[in-house]
Amino acid sequence: MVQDRLSSLFSALADPTRRGVLARLTTGDATVNELAEPYDMSVAAVSKHLKVLEAAGLISQGRQSQWRPRHLEARPLQEVFEWLENYRRFWDNSLDSLAEHLRVLQMQGAGKTGQRSKRARPASSPKKRK
């Protein structure tokens, strides 16, 4: 089954361990052992997470002698940002419309100040005599 790029990115980002690995890589390249340190899981389990991130294009593996550091590839996150940007604009417009509607209601309410409320008020109960 062929997966589109955005689905692959969201799938990779769906796991908190993988998001943690990406966050760690923002501070610089790291080996599998360094990336596995904060987690209560085997290096093999972390390696599986790294393979998912590599398949999504979010990290790459370098090679310096025996050392194979992982490196953050942030460019694919731009695709996620662009997709989300449409929804941000939608919510900004919706919230702007709501703010305008509330402003109009407030102005209409301000014209009614000084008028007494027509809501029924509970009658006070008579005091009991001893």
Rank of each mutant, 00 (worst) to 15 (best):
Y87I: 10
L35T: 11
A23K: 07
V32C: 09
M107F: 08
D15M: 05
L53G: 15
E73A: 10
R103K: 13
L58E: 07
V80K: 02
Q108M: 12
M41A: 13
S11N: 14
K118R: 10
S60C: 08
S97A: 11
A110V: 01
P69E: 07
K128H: 06
Y87K: 12
D96M: 07
A45D: 06
E82I: 00
A44C: 00
V2R: 05
D15I: 06
V32K: 06
R119G: 01
D4E: 09
L105E: 15
D15G: 06
D92E: 09
L25G: 03
E73T: 12
Q106T: 14
M41C: 10
V2P: 02
N33M: 11
T17Y: 05
R121I: 02
P122H: 14
S47M: 05
R75D: 15
Q78L: 15
G20N: 03
Y39E: 01
V21F: 04
N86F: 11
Q61L: 15
S94I: 00
T26W: 03
R119K: 05
G62K: 12
L102P: 04
P122Y: 10
N33H: 13
S11W: 13
Q3C: 00
W67Q: 13
A45N: 08
Q108N: 11
A23M: 05
K112F: 08
P16T: 10
D92S: 03
A36G: 03
L84W: 09
W67Y: 12
R89T: 14
P126K: 09
G111T: 11
M41P: 01
F81W: 07
T17E: 05
A74D: 04
R116G: 10
E79P: 00
V46H: 01
A44P: 00
K48M: 09
A110G: 04
E34D: 11
L22T: 06
S125C: 02
A12K: 07
V21N: 01
G28C: 08
L105P: 01
R103V: 03
Q3M: 02
R70D: 04
V80Q: 02
L50W: 11
L77P: 02
A14S: 15
E85V: 01
G114N: 12
Q61F: 14
R24D: 03
E73N: 14
A45C: 02
L72I: 01
R116W: 10
P16H: 06
P76K: 10
A12S: 12
D96S: 09
N93E: 13
W67E: 10
A12D: 08
S124L: 11
N86A: 14
K130Q: 07
L50Y: 11
Q78V: 15
R121L: 03
S124T: 11
